[in-house]
Computed example of a mutant assay.
Amino acid sequence: MSIQLMSEAGTVGGPNEDFVAAEGTTVVVLDGVSTVPGNGSGCHHGTAWFAGELAGRVLEHAQAPEGGLDDVLYRALADVVGLHGDACDLSLPDPPAAALAVVRERQGRMEYLVLCDCTIVADIGGTVQRITDDRLSALDLPERRAVLEDPTRAAYAALLEAKRRRRNTPGGYWVAASEPAAAWAAVKGSFPVGDVRRIALMTDGVSCAVDRYRLMDWAGLLDTLEDEPAALVRRIRDAEQRAFRGARNSLTKLHDDATAAYWRIA
């Protein structure tokens, strides 16, 4: 087995709110949720801190012999909530949060877990499968349609508020934040290890190469992650630049953080 990790901030020299790490036969990728100044995060640590601390706790708890990956995530989130301390008010609307994907090889199975919009792509006996949690993108939000029709700052603010109201609620979507019970809502499953040739975990700053910009298919993405990960990021940056130039406004950020882990099993 071999594992390759990559992560590039969206802005050269800027903060990277993604995180990727591996330990033993566990890999985790996190996509920190950027906060909007003045929206009441209640936390002085920040998103990058949250993503890094959560990754470390996930890897730590994943070494335990009992429990599934949802148990692992629950315990990891509980740990990080405890790390905030009295200086952070996690009851405010916008605490640090992250989407994440975890893969662990254990007892002859390749276990996986996804929460929010990270993506796992697995080559199972030559058939490529995509695994993600699309509950956020599937929400029927009139505020999302309003942004498409008239992308003003006020429309974006209304969309963010609509998403916040539905975060970590039944019928809404789930993300790792200040509520450990979100772990029970994650998408999870497993494959026999012997069936898995290769598997990749990625943030939407990488999966956009397929599901947004149509630069390649999922099998091609696996190939490029193995052979030319730096070239993949360059192609994504070019596509982001073209999309930004064609946008009706400049309220969205030019480049997203791009993070992935590629694991060749056999």
Rank of each mutant, 00 (worst) to 15 (best):
L5H: 10
S7V: 04
S7K: 02
T11W: 04
G14W: 06
P15F: 10
P15D: 12
D18V: 05
D18Q: 02
F19N: 06
V20K: 05
A21W: 08
A21T: 10
A22T: 15
G24V: 11
T25E: 15
T26M: 11
V27D: 04
L30F: 05
L30E: 02
T35F: 06
T35H: 09
P37N: 12
G38P: 04
N39T: 14
G40T: 05
S41V: 05
G42R: 03
G46L: 07
A51C: 14
A51R: 08
G52N: 10
G52P: 03
R57Q: 15
R57F: 09
L59K: 02
E60V: 14
H61N: 10
A62L: 03
A64D: 12
G68W: 00
G68Q: 01
G68K: 01
L69E: 01
D71Q: 08
Y74A: 08
Y74L: 06
R75D: 08
R75P: 03
A78N: 05
A78I: 04
D79L: 07
D79Y: 08
V81G: 01
G82A: 05
G85D: 04
L90H: 05
S91C: 12
A98K: 08
E105Q: 15
E105D: 15
E105K: 13
R106C: 09
R106F: 09
Q107L: 14
G108K: 11
E111P: 02
V114A: 09
L115P: 01
I120L: 07
I120C: 07
V121M: 06
D123W: 07
D123Q: 08
G125D: 10
G125Y: 08
T127A: 15
V128N: 10
Q129I: 12
S137G: 13
S137W: 08
S137M: 10
A138Y: 08
E143S: 13
A146W: 03
E149P: 11
P151M: 10
T152M: 09
A155I: 05
A158D: 11
A158C: 10
E161T: 14
K163L: 15
R164C: 07
T169I: 14
Y173L: 07
W174N: 04
A177C: 12
E179A: 11
A182S: 05
A183R: 00
G189K: 09
F191D: 02
D195P: 06
V196W: 00
R197G: 13
R197N: 13
R198M: 02
I199W: 00
A200E: 01
M202I: 05
T203G: 12
T203K: 04
D204C: 08
D204S: 10
G205K: 03
V206N: 01
V206F: 03
D211P: 02
Y213D: 04
R214W: 08
M216I: 06
M216L: 14
D217I: 04
G220C: 02
L222E: 00
L222R: 03
E226F: 05
D227A: 14
L232V: 06
L232R: 00
V233M: 06
I236D: 01
D238S: 13
D238A: 15
Q241W: 13
R242C: 13
R245M: 14
L251K: 06
K253F: 02
L254C: 04
W263L: 13
I265C: 15
